[in-house]
């Protein structure tokens, strides 16, 4: 295989040769800046054997004996990178003709990470403030609220008249999806003996009000009551309950119109004891 190698890579020898040349060039460049002061600043000094070690002492002073400092041994490589710095100290190197212009600094705008650490939350809060100004609906589905609506409760959602939907929809709440302003409830009811399920966005502008018709007497032990879809567990129609509730609320004169379920605490307390 070794014999075949040049045929495979005919440029291989060129590559190594060029690399060698490049390295040499770099080294020469590094030495160029150092060679000039050697002749100009310290002509009387006997020529030190390594010109690299000569670099710093020559710039310090034209001392008679340049002490070979061991710390400057790698200065050849250092000088390669700090070449401009070396040059300024050296005579014979010309400064740039024009002075540096004074730069105008623009003050950086304030960091949005500090001014608004959580923009999504800020937008959501603003939306909630807009869609639920009184906070009644937030309270109705707040987990920390004892009187909050929970799964298993029978809820009545009234829609705004011009929203293109039917007037209202009632059913058992079988799921509450808490997602900030996108929160929604899943109601399951029966209309003309056909089971209907509907997701309703809590803070939708189409929703005029949400009322608790009847609470579940015992707390549901599931968060999602999907088992109520089975015929065995189906709650059936809630129409009668809703009608009773509406008649009762009218008789009490509470006027459920335009109110959220939890905005009238007294009424709800009464129902809770039942």
């Amino acid at each position: 295989m070794a014999t075949l190698r040049p045929t495979h890579r005919p440029l291989a020898c060129w590559k190594s040769a060029l690399r060698q040349a490049r390295i040499q060039k770099h080294q020469q460049r590094a030495l160029w800046g150092l060679s000039t002061p050697e002749t100009s600043a310290a002509p009387d000094v006997p020529p030190p054997p390594p010109p690299v070690e000569e670099a710093r002492p020559s710039s310090e002073s034209p001392a008679s004996v340049p002490p070979p400092l061991p710390i400057y041994i790698p200065s050849a490589k250092v000088a390669q990178f700090h070449l401009p710095g070396c040059r300024t100290t050296l005579p014979g190197v010309v400064k740039p003709a024009h002075e540096m212009k004074r730069m105008r600094f623009v003050v950086a705008p304030p960091n949005p990470k500090k001014t608004c650490p959580d923009p999504v939350k800020a937008v959501e809060d603003a939306q909630l403030q807009l869609l639920d100004p009184t906070g009644a609906r937030r309270r109705l589905f707040d987990k920390s609220n004892i009187e909050a609506a929970k799964v298993g409760d029978i809820l009545l959602v009234r829609f705004r008249p011009g929203s293109g939907q039917s007037d209202q929809f009632a059913g058992v709440c079988i799921n509450i999806r808490r997602r900030g302003v996108d929160s929604a409830i899943l109601l399951r009811g029966q209309l003309t003996r056909v089971g209907v399920e509907m997701w309703v966005k809590l803070f939708s502008p189409n929703v005029e009000g949400i009322e608790v018709v009847q609470r579940k007497e015992k707390r549901a032990r599931r968060a999602r009551l999907y088992y109520m879809r089975q015929p065995k567990h189906d709650a059936g129609s809630v129409e009668n309950l809703v009608r009773q509730y509406q008649r009762r609320s009218q008789a009490l004169g509470t006027g459920a119109k335009g109110r959220d379920g939890n905005s009238h605490r007294k009424k709800n307390n009464k129902k809770g004891r039942k």
Binding site: Q165, V194, G195, V196, E197, M198, W199, K201, S204, N206
Partner: peptide
């Protein structure tokens, strides 16, 4: 189930 433009979703049992 089908979703409406206002985000509500409706499904029937049959």
């Amino acid at each position: 189930k089908y979703q409406r433009a206002d985000g509500s979703v409706v499904k029937f049992d049959d």
